[in-house]
Design a protein around this nucleic acid. Structure first.
Length: 426
RNA sequence: GUGAGCGUAGCUCAGUUGGUUAGAGUCCCGGAUUGUGAUUCCGGUUGUCGUGGGUUCGAGUCCCAUCGCUCACCCCA
């Protein structure tokens, strides 16, 4: 045996058992999003590297050290997308559908970040992203959150907490940031190593520190909310009213800081305490300046992204795995002539919409029934010399009590439809 | 990028103070009167003990390096 090749670190295979749960989440999400008038958009995995530097921010960790960037054969600097918003905005500007218009869009797919893998964090991970353009009022912010609530409910998800904050406008944020930096610099000696590093690059992150020793300093630090501009404050208050009106519980977290530079005003995060350190399952906010920043006519926008791996993991630990996709019946074929007849019979059943797994490779009845069992099929259909003589099939219920009946091939479809409850027989 | 823990059969793991040909369960294959699965019983296949070096008469076990995995920090969905 030659040496086996391993998958790239942090890039996982999703095996069939897992995929079934993913498909359930994807289908549910699609239905919910469509219920709000959001339309799917499909975007490239590769973009010019500059797009991310200009949107996410050149000083952010994502752009500075986590992107999969390379030069292609033309010498263009390209990057595997680390998130979806930038590409979506780029596509909107390029295709002209943001120009003075309202758009509600969603997409799903893999994102790539070169981080150290740990629970809930992988180098290839998947997001469902939602973006709405052209609306600057907080009713949109509320709609996005209500959409999340509906999705959690549809999936039967429990234990998620909504955290809310407002970052204000770029101007009010800059003022606050300067004030915070002055405050922290005066207390340099009380800051830990991480915070000293963040002091220059992203001082607001210090407020989010997990280090207990930092808490006294953080408690005294100036509050972002006291520095919000008038419009941002009204916007935030109105969002709160909408949510109360809709019965959505939330917690205001003035320390909630998003890591991407383009966020303005509303930011939110759905978190759980059941997934270890990577607790954010869904997060988003407003990015009113991004369209203009990327070269489009100014247009307000807001959106969020769901971390699929985290959501699926959360779902997995609270409900047993769904068993969709199992065939309705497994066709057991005994002998040469049954083999020939069997392929035709299987096609016939599939024409009627049934999922049929047909035995291949010969073998005795015992071995074939064993496979029938493992296929998760409800029924085993046995076809041998005896059945061929009188045009019947022996139908064995693999899941119920040991019931076995002989059914004429002419009425087999009706029989199976009725027994599997696929359709009510007329 | 930093730290900690762990690498023994396809999978889950055991393996005494270093001491013969390295074990269990599971999975897979076959059998228990010819065409009846899942349950039970019997039999069988499966290992460069992650990799490379060192210590030793002798290393799965001790030491060093390296690779990989996991979790946490950081970061974020």
């Amino acid at each position: 045996m030659s040496k086996a090749i391993q998958a790239v670190r942090g890039m996982n295979d999703l095996l069939p058992e897992t995929v079934e749960r993913w498909q359930l989440v994807e289908a549910t999400a699609r239905d919910v999003l469509h219920a709000y008038g959001y339309r799917e958009i499909r975007l490239p995995l590769l973009e010019k590297s500059e797009l991310f530097a200009r949107s996410i921010g050149s000083q952010t960790d994502i752009v500075e050290k986590e992107m999969y960037s390379f030069e292609d054969r033309n010498g263009d600097n390209l990057t595997l997308r680390p998130e979806g918003t930038a590409g979506c905005v780029r596509a909107g500007i390029e295709n002209g559908f943001l120009h003075n218009q309202i758009q509600r869009l969603w997409y799903a797919g893999p994102m790539f970040r070169h981080e150290r893998p740990q629970k809930g964090r992988y180098r290839q991970f998947h997001q469902i992203g939602v973006e709405a353009f052209g609306i600057d009022t907080p009713d949109l912010d509320a709609e996005l959150i209500l959409m999340c609530v509906r999705l959690w409910k549809s999936l039967g998800l429990e234990g998620l907490t909504l955290e809310l904050n407002s970052l204000g406008t770029p101007e009010s944020r800059a003022t606050y940031r300067a004030k915070l930096t002055r405050f922290l610099k005066a207390r340099r000696d009380q800051l830990d190593e991480d915070s000293l590093r963040r002091l220059e690059k992203n001082p607001m992150r210090i407020l989010d520190s997990k280090n207990p020793a930092m808490q006294p300093v953080i408690a005294e630090a100036p509050n972002l909310h006291d520095h919000l501009d008038e419009d941002s404050r009204t916007h935030f208050d109105r969002l709160g009213e909408y949510l109360k009106e809709s019965g959505v519980a939330y917690r205001i977290n003035p320390r909630l800081v998003r890591g991407l530079d383009y966020y303005t005003r509303t930011v939110f995060e759905w978190t759980t305490d059941r997934l270890g350190a990577q607790s954010a399952v869904c997060a988003g906010g407003r990015f009113d300046g991004l369209v203009e920043q990327l070269g489009g006519r100014p247009a307000p926008a807001a959106g969020f992204a769901i971390g699929m791996e985290r959501l699926v993991e959360l779902l997995a630990r609270q409900s047993p795995s769904p068993s969709s996709g199992a065939p309705e019946a497994y066709l057991v074929l005994l002998g040469e002539s049954a083999g020939k007849h069997g392929l035709r019979l299987a096609e016939c059943l599939r024409n009627a919409g049934l999922r049929i797994e047909c035995h291949c490779g010969g073998g005795g009845l015992k071995a074939q029934l064993k496979r029938a069992d493992r296929s998760r099929a409800r029924f085993a259909l046995m076809l041998g010399d005896e059945e061929l003589q009188d045009n019947t099939v022996t139908v064995k219920d693999m899941r119920g009590k040991d019931v076995q009946v002989s059914v004429h091939q002419d009425v087999l479809i009706d029989f199976l439809n009725e027994r599997t409850g696929r359709r009510v027989k007329t």
